[in-house]
Design a protein around this nucleic acid. Structure first.
Length: 468
RNA sequence: CGGGACGUGGCGCAGCCUGGUAGCGCACCGGCUUUGGGUGCCGGGGGUCGCCGGUUCGAAUCCGGCCGUCCCGACCA
């Protein structure tokens, strides 16, 4: 492995993170503070996330639609908590077409309001419910302390918005998205274990009655909120007059939900799986699962490498050839920085032996594989790598969660990881105390890992940590 | 907005204190070399020293003003 290519994680984790993003060619800072240029390799990772997520969202019954970037300022103000929560980070267009606008247009920070307005129009009868929508879009939240992928003033995301006839139906749908779309996606595609829970009132989405969250643990023990699913009660339905006639011809307000995941997940992926050699991309998300490297050309090696790529592609493996003219070591280091799970090294020596060399980014090590058995070996490696990444992440998380009894102990544990303690021992005051040390209650959960329906249920645990 | 630092080729920095017309590492380009772990050597291109003004024969360097960036704090997918 190459040395000193990037800052070691243990030396300076934030610096390591920046180095990985730069060296793996994931992103650059944009020209306006807080903005981000997503480079092709970073974007291809996002595209794979989108694809996998989109399929799950559709399987949950939601359909894609698109709503405008500009929202009338007056919409935002209709839901009191919502506007209060978002006003500090709004970008507002006051001038356009060379004139001052009669009503300023807010650049969407999220779309509950516009979508609420239109859902109100479309929902007339109980027969129109549930109405299940999703959109892929960019949103803008003017951030004071931006960090690439984790907190940028503009980011890309998916936002789901649904309307239901009953509170129970809305609750179950928010839960379904939380568990069967988000958490499963993170586990099965990103190889990331997440803690599921509900947010405290302080951490709840502005305008929601309940916020469910997926919290991931990063390599430095800090928490990252990777996705949220909200029950909005009738708050937005009331603000936008979204009502419908029941079977009994009664007029009732709908119950709505919203839920989102963003490009922040790319940051989570980096910080969860990366190591001192760079990124490690889980095979299912990897834009390039196998890089076939021409070690030394001249004896039909390049042609053999291309044939191998074709065979892998035909077998449904995402493969690319690397026949660049640069030194082998540099190309190998590049592949490691980018976290490509498997490298197939092809050189004259290999071909003479009728084999190739399989180099593993995640499991580590190299070994010869007969050409005829390559496709199967690659398939097995990719499955094994996914499981290994998940196991690593899970082990780290379990090692770094401490069960404690007091706020003081929790604060101590949060220096290196997470702590769980009875929510009853924390409460709103304890939450404020911890906040003074930049420690937050990430979520509330039950001892068996399930999500409590109410904050004050018996045995509810608070998960506290420092967070991104 | 409160506290701290910094603006010099693409990136990271030295030079400033003690003025004399810009240098190093990486990256980039060309040649040879080596392609099985950032190969080595030779050659080369690229900078209004953040901006404006002042002092001076002469300013990256000294003085004044302005602009910008980064870090810490208050907000967040």
């Amino acid at each position: 492995m190459a040395k000193n290519v990037i800052t070691p994680r243990g030396e300076d984790f934030p610096r390591w993170y920046q180095d990985v993003i730069q060296k793996a060619e994931l992103a650059d800072n944009g020209p306006v503070r807080g903005t981000m240029v997503i480079r092709p390799y970073g974007y291809s990772i996002w595209e794979r996330m989108q694809q996998a997520m989109d399929a799950r969202i559709k399987a949950a019954g939601a359909k894609n639609a698109y709503f405008p970037l500009f929202i009338p300022e007056s919409y935002l103000t209709r839901e009191a908590e919502h506007v209060e929560g978002f006003s500090p980070e709004l970008a507002v267009v006051t001038h356009a077409g060379g004139k001052r606008l009669e009503e300023p247009a807010v650049v969407r920070p999220t779309s509950e309001t516009v979508i609420g307005e239109y859902m109100a129009k479309w929902v007339q009868s109980y027969r129109d419910l549930p109405l299940l929508l999703n959109q892929w879009a960019n949103v803008v939240r003017w951030e004071l302390r931006p960090r690439l992928f984790l907190r940028t003033s503009e980011f890309l995301w998916q936002e789901g918005h649904t309307a239901h006839a009953t509170e129970e139906d809305a609750r179950l749908y928010a839960k379904r998205i939380h568990e069967q779309v988000y958490a499963e996606f993170m586990r099965d595609e990103l190889a990331m274990p997440v803690v599921l829970g509900r947010k405290t009132a302080k951490e709840r989405f502005a305008g929601a009655t309940n916020t469910l969250t997926c919290e991931g643990m990063m390599g430095d023990g800090k928490a990252l909120q990777m996705g949220t699913s909200h029950e909005l009660g009738q708050n937005f339905a009331r603000a936008f007059d979204m009502n419908f006639l029941t079977e009994d011809n009664e007029r009732e307000l709908a119950w709505t939900t919203s839920w989102g995941t963003s490009t922040r997940m790319v940051g989570g992926l980096i910080m969860c799986h990366g190591d001192d050699a760079g990124l490690r991309v889980p095979p299912k998300i990897a834009p390039v699962q196998v890089l076939v490297m021409v070690v030394k050309d001249g004896e039909g090696v390049a042609a053999a490498a291309r044939q191998i790529v074709d065979d892998l592609l035909a077998a449904g493996v995402r493969a690319e050839v690397d026949d660049r003219d640069t030194a082998f070591g540099r190309r190998a280091v590049d592949a490691e920085l980018k976290g490509i799970p498997v490298r197939v090294e092809v050189g004259p020596r290999d071909l003479a032996a009728g084999s190739v060399t399989l180099a593993r980014r995640i499991a580590g090590g190299k070994s010869p594989v007969p050409l005829g058995g390559l496709v199967d070996a690659v398939r097995a490696a990719l499955v094994e790598d996914h499981d290994a990444l998940y196991a690593d992440a899970l082990r780290r998380r379990d090692d770094r969660i401490q069960s404690v009894a007091t706020i003081a102990e929790a604060a101590e544990a949060a220096a290196t990881g997470w702590a769980t303690l009875p929510w009853a021992a924390v409460g709103t005051e304890g939450e404020a105390t911890l906040g003074e040390s930049a420690i937050t209650v990430r979520c509330l959960m039950l001892p068996d890992g399930s999500v409590p329906r109410e904050e004050d249920e018996d045995g509810v645990l608070a998960v506290v940590a420092r967070a991104y």
